[in-house]
Amino acid sequence: MSNLQAPRGGGKEESGLRYPTNGKTIYHRPLNRAKAAELSGASFAYLFSEMVSYASKKIESIQDLEKRSMDPSFTHKTPYLTRFIASARLNVQGHPIGLKLLDLLLYREPARTQTRPLTIITLLHFIKINVWQHLFGQVADGLEKSSDPSKPDEYMIIDNEPLVNRYISVPRDMSQLNCAAYVAGIIEGVCDGSAFPARVTAHSVGKQEEGEMWPGRTVFLVKFAPEVMERESFLGKG
């Protein structure tokens, strides 16, 4: 991490939390000093359970719970106002995590590859591999482009068994809800943070039949904003 060692004060050697002598700042280490740097799954499950309960309170419809805004146009995405109004929603709870995670994970990359993703594909690979590995300890199970030619702006990240949904059974009358909307919010945060505004939604595609291998299979549908597609097409030509 040679780029981190250069002290700013002229000639004066600084050593401290910000610029330690070995070049590893506090941002390079997980806060958790345990060997595998893992957290308790049970604690997370209880915490997330309460987050879902909190998000479910005083909500008229399931659509509200999952999505920050029903408005498909991105022009109305006034970031803070909308988010504060609808703060009790899962997607919103995940969004700031995605924004910060993008910074943190890029910062931890070796100096040579410390660049922000510049194309849709590199961005989605970054999410599928780095973000997933950091959050869930494994890479996502799939990454696909929508096969529908009329929707070139849609990509799918697939997780066979989302960690957040491990202990959750959604009742039948709320079957449209997928609590991995929280993870969708994180993805959306990463996309927004790297200047690829997108709307990300979580959909359950697992079949509920007996003997089904992945009943909790979830698709995260990433729909990029029109301007992203426009820029992407220019990049492709150049």
């Binding site: 049970a42 499950a45 209880y46 997330f48 359970s49 309460e50 879902v52 309960s53 479910s56 202990y167 959750i168 059974s169 959604v170 009742p171 709320m174 609590c179 509920q208 009943p215 909790g216």
Partner: peptide, 16 residues
């Protein structure tokens, strides 16, 4: 650990 389950109520959890 299921947020949709209320304690002391009948258990209706597919995963369980």
């Amino acid at each position: 650990k299921n947020p949709f389950y209320q304690l002391e109520m009948p258990i209706r959890c597919d995963t369980f």
